[in-house]
């Protein structure tokens, strides 16, 4: 049994909240730079240049690249041989968020109740997903996500007959209609299969995958490539103002599902691709 203290968890979450918000991940950086070379629209080029300049300044001055420092989603992979001592695990995570958002001068964007809407003042609570895995490691990934892109996400229960063409039609229609508001260039996270609640998690988890990485399954790698090409053919462009760079990547996360179901979820990620991971 490996022992980890709740203080270690708090410290890790605090660090991740700040680093994820202030530093664009290297893969996103490279992808945007690459897209800038090929962007056909002068306005689109101008937008991509502003984004890169902004993200450079943010990293240099340790400021959040976007003022919407998001609702904090946290993915935890807990080795089954890990024990966390010294206090409530969830409270340790909450405290990490509290510290990170205060010390990092990050915006507090969480309301305590969805209808009565009073700010909690410290960006808690985060949404925590915990998966138990073999081994003695504790892996924590923090993903702050702004509402601009999160609001442009959806779930659709398709029928099995609709198949891959149905999935494609729905994804393309969705990005065409809603993509402009989600701050393109986007990463399009797609969950396919599982259950109603599970498919949403698949779509979000798909966003953690490095941009430029291929889906481990060749079948899905091909679909991702096809969807990406078609999305960039839509013409939305950077910020939706027209152009050839609408998405940096499409990531699909499949899962087994019921014989009568074909759940589909789309979680759009803005160009400020923010996530960071620590393994304890």
């Amino acid at each position: 049994m490996k022992e980890i203290t709740s203080q270690d968890v708090t410290q890790a979450v605090e660090t991740l909240c700040i680093s994820s918000n202030c530093t664009l991940s290297e893969d996103a950086w490279e992808a945007i730079k690459e897209m800038l070379k090929d962007e056909e629209s002068p306005t689109g080029k101008e937008v991509l240049e502003q984004i890169l300049e902004n993200d450079r300044l943010a990293k240099e001055e340790k400021l959040p690249m976007c003022q919407d420092t998001g609702f904090t989603t946290i993915f935890v992979e807990m080795g089954q041989e890990v024990g966390v001592n010294g206090g409530d695990f969830y409270e340790a995570i909450n405290q990490g968020v509290r510290n990170g958002y205060k010390k990092g001068y990050l915006r507090k964007s969480v309301v305590k109740d969805p209808l009565r809407r009073k700010n909690t003042g410290d960006n808690t609570p985060p949404w925590v997903h915990i998966d138990i895995i073999p081994g003695d490691r504790l892996k924590i990934s923090v993903m702050p996500k702004g509402a601009g892109s999160e609001n442009m996400s959806t779930i659709k229960m398709l029928t099995p007959a609709e198949g891959v063409q149905g999935v494609k039609r729905f994804v393309l229609d969705w990005v065409r209609e809603r993509g402009a508001n989600a701050c393109p260039p986007l990463v399009v996270g797609v969950g396919i299969g599982g259950t109603f609640e599970g498919v949403a998690k698949l779509a979000k988890k798909a966003l953690l995958r490095p941009i430029g990485s291929k889906n481990p399954e060749p079948f899905y790698a091909e679909i991702e490539e096809d969807f990406l090409k078609e999305i960039n053919n839509l013409g939305l462009g950077p910020q939706g103002l027209g152009g050839s760079t609408t998405a940096l990547a499409v990531h699909i996360e499949p899962y087994p599902c019921h014989i009568a179901s074909l759940p589909l979820a789309i979680n759009l990620q803005c160009h400020a691709v923010r996530h960071a991971t620590i393994v304890l």
Partner: peptide, 23 residues
């Protein structure tokens, strides 16, 4: 960037028209 002007034009619509590729 001006996205809507006093003439009822919309840069979002015009941008898509200009850069969309039919596949």
């Amino acid at each position: 960037i001006v996205a809507n002007d006093v003439y009822g034009n919309d840069l979002f619509d015009e941008g898509i028209k200009k850069y969309r590729k039919v596949t």
